[in-house]
């Protein structure tokens, strides 16, 4: 008896209720996530961009919008890392230069410069990127969280670094820890 015969025979012998039971079992099996796969699927989605000669990334869920760097209005009386403000469909966004904030070398603007509007909670701010590459998934296992001493970037703004030397920025702490917040009054 070959395999096909056996299969036909068994299918004939199974009545409707048994079939339902088997299908249910199969469905359950399929629905169950295999353990190994779960490990692999632990990945974060990031948007990669250039700051000077280096490549950085931010979690893609923090990117609200991407726009080309066009007319910017400079602001007087603000720290140098604030480049100015832009108008995006009627709403004003401030644009900051991470190179200045992180004390990285590099030219101010280029033709490829873009503004990424990053948001966390209520806080929204535009970040000037020298170029924006695209979205990619990075397995969590490939992100090194304990960091060697790195450039000018404060460790609290770093989420991790990948094996390809991609630096992932911790947008939450960048936006919420208050160091980019400008609140200056004039003492009378």
């Amino acid at each position: 008896m070959n395999v096909f015969d056996l299969k036909r025979e068994s299918s004939e012998n199974i009545d409707r209720t048994d079939k339902a039971v088997i299908l249910r079992e199969r469905a359950l099996n399929l629905a169950h996530k295999p353990c190994v796969a779960v490990q692999d699927s632990q990945a974060i989605e990031v948007l990669t961009f250039a700051l000077g000669d280096e490549i950085y990334a931010v979690g893609s869920e923090t990117v609200r919008e991407l726009c080309s760097f066009k007319q910017i209005t400079r602001l007087p009386c603000v720290p140098t890392f604030v480049l100015g403000i832009i108008n995006l469909r009627g709403k004003i966004f401030s644009v900051i230069d991470l190179k200045r904030l992180f004390e990285l070398p590099g030219t101010p603007f280029s033709e490829k410069s873009k503004v990424m509007i990053l948001g966390f909670g209520d806080m929204e701010v535009g970040i000037l990127a020298d170029d924006v590459f695209g979205v990619q998934e990075i397995p969590v296992s490939e992100i090194q969280q304990d960091l060697p001493t790195l450039k000018g970037i404060n460790e609290k703004y770093l989420y991790g670094i990948t094996l390809e030397r991609l630096t992932i920025i911790n947008v939450e702490s960048l936006l919420t820890d208050g160091s980019i917040l400008v609140h200056e009054t004039i003492e009378p």
């Binding site: 007319q71 209005t73 602001l75 007087p76 009386c77 603000v78 604030v82 403000i85 832009i86 108008n87 009627g90 709403k91 004003i92 966004f93 401030s94 900051i96 209520d122 806080m123 929204e124 701010v125 980019i180 917040l181 400008v182 609140h183 200056e184 009054t185 004039i186």
Partner: peptide, 26 residues
């Protein structure tokens, strides 16, 4: 128009506006 959350208060500047030309002025 408000300057946005990051620029909570800027010395000498209270807000921004968009001119008829589309240019942003402080």
């Amino acid at each position: 128009k408000s300057l946005g959350r990051q620029l909570s208060r800027v010395r000498n500047v209270s807000a921004a506006t968009v001119l008829g030309s589309g240019q942003v002025a402080l």
